[in-house]
């Protein structure tokens, strides 16, 4: 036995064990639900789903694995409006999330900058932000659909409205809390306001702003699934709903897996970006 294993190796081993235990208990649970097949017309049995054939309604890990592998090997097929590859559906969702997110950033960061610079603006706008922030983004959906009259734009709007708050609040906070010393240095050097904004305040507040962005993209990815379930048509949310309508639990579970993976990657990307602007005091 070696005792010099790096900590990550131990953690990895433990992760694999946890995964193994989870898959095994899932498999056993599915096995225990299996009963004898009811005698009936095979065509009717096909219509009634797996339970009629004596199988559990819950797919086994192997079924889900097969399904996921099928999606991975053929992600971009397009067989009509209700049967598109998961890659296409994810691409739709990601495009919507990124559009809404960047539009929100485009407004939230400069606006937060201005609010953060002014004590009065901070106090004046605080009640509005506090009131609008806790509203579930989906509550905006009917209003968006009514005014915009386009489901695609409406879901982008919902992403926009839910990602704007964390970015706005964090930018304001970051800008308002730039160390007095650094601003004084800029003042004693007679640095112009623009130069102070870009060379001092922005880099000083950047880590806080990036944290806000990271929170925002997480919320946006949570919300897009629900929004697409409502508006339908395309996207991973619609895919989940469609699989549910098809009674394909296998499809739903594999979609959950892909939603998780994409959410993780988005978060990772923002975390990376955050590390680029981080500084140690």
């Amino acid at each position: 036995m070696t005792t010099t294993q790096p900590p990550w190796a131990k953690a990895l081993a433990l992760s694999i064990i946890i995964l193994g235990v989870f898959l095994l208990s899932w498999h056993l649970f599915v096995l225990s639900k299996q009963g004898p097949a009811v005698k009936m017309d095979p065509e009717l049995a096909e219509l009634l789903g797996p339970t009629a054939k004596g199988k559990s309604a819950i797919p086994s890990p192997a079924d889900v694995g097969k399904e996921i592998w099928g999606h991975i090997t053929n992600p971009f097929y397009d067989a009509g409006p209700n049967d598109k590859g998961i890659g296409i559906q994810l691409a739709y969702s990601i495009a919507r999330v990124l559009t809404g997110f960047f539009l929100a950033a485009l407004i939230a960061v400069p606006l937060g900058f201005l609010i953060g610079m002014s004590n009065v603006a901070q106090r004046a706008l605080d009640p509005f932000i506090q009131l609008l922030k806790p509203v579930s983004p989906l509550a905006w959906m009917p209003l968006a659909l009514y005014t915009i009259k386009d489901s695609e734009t409406s879901s982008i709007f919902v992403i926009f409205i839910c990602s704007i708050w964390p970015m706005l609040i964090n930018t304001t906070f970051g800008v308002a809390n730039v160390r007095r010393e650094w601003l004084n240095v800029a003042r004693t050097l007679e640095v112009s306001s623009w130069r102070t904004a870009f060379r001092v305040i922005l880099p000083a507040a950047a880590p806080t702003i990036l944290t806000g962005m990271r929170i925002s993209i997480g919320i946006a990815w949570l919300v897009i699934v629900a929004a697409e379930m409502l508006v339908g048509g395309t996207g991973i949310g619609y895919f989940v709903w469609n699989e549910w309508n098809n009674l394909s639990i296998t499809g739903v579970i594999s979609a959950i897996f892909f939603i998780g993976v994409v959410g993780m990657l988005l978060d990772l990307a923002l975390a990376r970006a955050g590390r680029l602007v981080a500084y140690v005091e």
Partner: peptide, 27 residues
């Protein structure tokens, strides 16, 4: 108001932590 004629050395070093030593002076 402040002026470049009067340089200040602050109690804490007041260096910008995201800039290198050279960049701080160059600022």
């Amino acid at each position: 108001g402040p002026s470049l004629d009067r340089a200040v050395i602050f109690q804490g070093h007041a260096l910008m932590p995201w800039m290198t030593a050279m960049a701080n002076i160059d600022f």
